[in-house]
């Protein structure tokens, strides 16, 4: 490598670290400061590390609201993801493998789901009519609906890379259509399923606006909404607000750190060998 290249590389790295790591450091440092120190909003180190105190204060705030929010968010995420992955895989399989005259129409719907922004007021009206407004399962259905288009497209293109001969070999072996899907195709979808599960669960877990619209009420609070609730209360207690941010950011971050490789693999994986 030339000297110049080395210098450019180092500069780029330093810039990258500043851009990506500074916000995290800022969150981390502010979260352990005292209220007075935190109000300056600086990057200076705290004079006293108050991790435990701030942590407990946030947890206990508003009658353990954060724990309830964790529970709600987990229920929504797990419920929505299970439904989403299974139905997206099945829909993707059917539209890839059984072309029919409906396909154009179905594609139009999928693209519409990707492109047309959801209308909040009619959706709320519909949820109310179905008695699903302000309920967790209503929220789950909303998340499934919003994530379905993208997931179906991912599954569909992955299934297109699985040779049709496999389906036919299974049919010759006596598999019923549902057995072809569950015994032959589904096991081969592992890489893309992991990708869909990770990407969508982070999106759903971190969702702020949709729970804000469709899931009002103290008992229905989700993790991102705790920030919203706390923000007014903690305007003089930046340290607690940032501790809350820290706690909310951690689960998705852990997911990304651990499953980084799988996500990329699922995105790029194509043909099944063998």
């Amino acid at each position: 490598m030339k000297r110049q290249q080395v210098i450019i590389g180092i500069v780029a790295l330093v810039l990258g670290v500043l851009l990506f790591a500074t916000p995290f450091m800022f969150i981390g440092i502010t979260a352990v400061k005292s209220a007075a120190e935190a109000s300056h909003l600086g990057l200076s180190l705290p004079s006293k590390w108050l991790f435990w105190e701030n942590f407990m204060a946030v947890i206990k705030a508003r009658n353990y609201m954060l724990l309830l929010a964790y529970f709600n968010s987990t229920v929504i995420t797990v419920g929505a993801i299970s439904l989403l992955a299974v139905s997206a895989a099945m829909i993707g399989y059917v539209i890839q493998r059984r072309p029919s005259k409906w396909n154009g129409f179905i594609y139009a719907l999928i693209l519409a789901g990707l492109m047309i922004p959801p209308a909040v007021v009619p959706t709320i009206w519909l949820l109310k009519e179905l008695h699903l407004f302000k309920t967790l399962h209503g929220m789950i259905l909303i998340q499934v609906a919003y994530g379905l288009s993208f997931s179906v497209l991912l599954f569909r293109s992955f299934i297109a890379s699985i040779p049709r001969d496999l389906d036919e070999a299974a049919i010759i072996d006596g598999a019923k259509p549902w057995q072809v899907f569950f015994k032959v195709i589904l096991p081969l979808l592992k890489p893309i399923t992991i990708t869909v599960v990770l990407v969508q669960s982070v999106t759903i877990f971190n969702d702020f606006t949709n729970p804000l619209y469709y899931l009002p009420g103290k008992d229905n609070v989700t993790v991102q909404l705790t920030l919203y609730n706390f923000q007014s209360q903690f305007s003089s207690q930046m340290n607690l607000l940032f501790m809350n941010i820290l706690l909310v950011t951690i689960p998705p971050l852990i997911m990304f750190i651990f499953f980084n490789k799988q996500i990329v693999k699922g995105m790029t994986a194509g043909a099944v060998k063998g």
Partner: peptide, 11 residues
């Protein structure tokens, strides 16, 4: 039936 591509189940 035996297929040209073998069509073995990879998993």
């Amino acid at each position: 039936m035996v297929f040209q591509s073998y069509a073995l189940y990879p998993h």
